[in-house]
Design a protein around this nucleic acid. Structure first.
Lengths: 249, 249
DNA sequence: CGAACAGTTGAGCGCGTTCAACCATCGTGG
DNA sequence: CCACGATGGTTGAACGCGCTCAACTGTTCG
């Protein structure tokens, strides 16, 4: 039990009942768990995928018919541009869904494992049957998608209208809150596998400028990010500085 | 019939069967229309809302329990910032849904009518019942939300990684394609009720710079936007310039 | 040991901003 | 009927945030 919590994984790649229930709960905490949901999930033949850090799970333009639900680890979805740069749309943590879309619509983003990841893989084509059999599950997916849309809206505000330092602080606060909501961090900080380059690609900045802004934030005693660890020495001040309000998560 | 198509509205504020079917089709064109869908929509007591141009339909933070589906006109969802500026997350055209989310989650964006709008208003709390009665409809909502998420992803790329002129061209091409998909425009141009200020707020720019970039695009013969009309004298060149690919829509 | 990768710091440039005028159009009231 | 204020659009000048280019420092891994 303690071991399972520590790794946040399913035991030996087996889809345990408690693990699945826990995951669905985090996917959409507002929606109480229906008894049928786990049953129906199992009926559509889910697989458990494990991916090494820094591997591409699904590439831009792939004709994949898989919908993913993150169970452990950090991922990101991004778009590559012709000039070689990329833009990360959002980061995926436990309970986030990726790739759900209409049949025949190409998957125009890439999905990438940042740390080691364990994901639930569901064939998208079985979705229709799943929903008709378990309306609770349909609502759960809807809510998860709605939150995803809200997160992207907040990222748009961040990139479009905020200065580099505020942007950076906002993103690091968001990630901290999301980890907390998934039961994976406490308010004073968290382990973060992102590089400065990842942050830059998510924030529409260069890695060099991210580096400078991190120094500024550290020297202002608002937050620090060094050696894979984010710390909030004064989280209230950081939230005020970044205009961060967790309501959208 | 011709009159209805011209105004793209329901007759006299009445929810006609053909109008409703048409709207659901545009919401998620990939999904063929189930017989039960319109019936169930009617069961949850939909209203038809009409809004004058430049009015707020739903304000940031409102405890609204309404999900909207645009039937005619242009809207936008945006977030206001403490410094008085705002960021438009996306524009809503016919078939787009707004406000779908979990119970108890605040609506953290504002929804604004840009032109005169006609919207279908559905009580969000009835959603659960709707989905259990009509799984086809649930899938339709899922697909509409997934497309919305994809559009926001593309907007993130736009704002995060492209120059002002490319950004602007990309957005105007996207809006043109979306209007075409809804049967409201042809490839050479469309009527556009947006101000340069609206465009600026969507693109993370100032209205002044939008003005300059529009002049540049016009002088390059890529596209023009004057007096409420967008024209594409050379759409292929414009699409190449903007790296616009319509796959995500 | 050396290659590859992530992080760090400095100097100078340029895109998009701010500030400031000014014009055109339109609805409104004296 | 024109005066007017409000709104949207247009243009110029100068500033500054974040970029580019460049160099250098760890650290990890073959």
């Amino acid at each position: 039990m303690i071991q399972e919590n520590k790794t946040q994984g399913f035991a030996n790649g087996v889809l345990t009942q408690s693990g699945l229930e826990h995951l669905l709960g985090i996917m959409a905490p507002q929606q109480k768990l229906g008894k049928d949901e786990t049953v129906v999930i199992r009926e559509i033949g889910p697989k458990i995928g494990r991916y090494a850090p820094r591997t591409v799970i699904n590439a831009q333009g792939d004709q994949s018919d898989t919908t993913y639900v993150v169970n452990s680890g950090w991922g990101c979805t991004y778009l590559d541009l012709p000039d070689g740069s990329r833009q990360i749309a959002d980061f995926q943590l436990k309970g986030d869904i990726i790739g759900l879309r209409a049949d025949g619509v190409n998957w125009e983003e890439s999905f990438h494992a940042i740390s080691e990841m364990e994901v639930l893989e569901l064939p998208t084509k079985g979705l229709n049957q799943v929903l008709s059999a378990a309306p609770n599950l349909a609502v759960r997916f809807l809510f998860a998608l709605a939150r995803n849309s809200a997160i992207r809206g907040e990222h748009l505000v961040n990139i479009g209208r905020r200065s580099a330092a505020v942007r950076l602080a906002h993103l690091l606060l968001e990630l901290g809150t999301r980890l907390e909501n998934a039961g994976l961090a406490d308010p004073d900080g968290y382990d973060c596998p992102l590089t400065q380059h990842d942050l830059a690609d998510a924030l529409g900045l260069t890695a060099i400028h991210v580096n400078r802004m991190l120094r500024e934030l550290r020297q202002s005693n608002l937050l620090s990010f060094r050696n894979g660890r984010v710390n909030f020495p004064n989280r209230k001040a950081a939230a005020r500085f970044a205009h961060f309000e967790a309501d959208y998560l």
